[in-house]
């Protein structure tokens, strides 16, 4: 089953509503990356409210997706993690999740807009300072 990826202005919103097999998880990763590049998205929100198991494989797929999206120049925020999933991930090894997270979709959209804004300001500052400072 394909997971719908919705476009909202310059961000993508997607919600994983079913238990994914390993193959479906990889397909989802590929779809997200393709969509980011297709619409020049600045951010991606991935809602995992309905995921009741995030094992080390799924954790890796989510982490890798976030890293790949960042390489394309966009930001990622994960939202809606179940409390029991958070407990399990920390008990298994806290290295497992290295993605920006938010409690719910509202906060995730706020966070992603902040991230996009701060990235734009940093880029602007660097560009302005560089000729003057003569460094880097």
């Amino acid at each position: 089953m394909k997971i719908p990826i919705l476009k909202l202005k310059d961000i993508l919103i997607t919600s994983i509503q079913i238990d994914l097999t390993d193959e479906e998880a990889i397909e989802f990763q590929t779809d997200v990356l393709a969509k980011v590049s297709e619409i020049d998205a600045n951010g991606v929100v991935i809602d995992i409210t309905a995921l009741d198991v995030v094992d080390s494989f799924m954790a890796r797929v989510l982490n890798n997706t976030a890293t790949m999206v960042r390489l394309l120049g966009a930001e990622v925020v994960l939202c809606g993690m179940q409390p029991s999933v958070a407990i399990t991930l920390v008990e298994m090894g806290r290295e497992l999740i290295g993605v920006e997270t938010a409690l719910n979709l509202d906060q995730a959209v706020d966070n992603i807009n902040e991230l996009i804004k701060s990235r734009a300001t940093t880029a602007l500052k660097e560009r302005r300072l560089e000729p003057w400072m003569g460094c880097r």
């Binding site: 494989f57 179940q82 029991s84 407990i87």
Partner: peptide, 17 residues
Amino acid sequence: GSADQTRLATAISELTR
């Protein structure tokens, strides 16, 4: 409880993978 249910489900997921 739900935390234990998730612990067991996750453990089974790791082993069967």
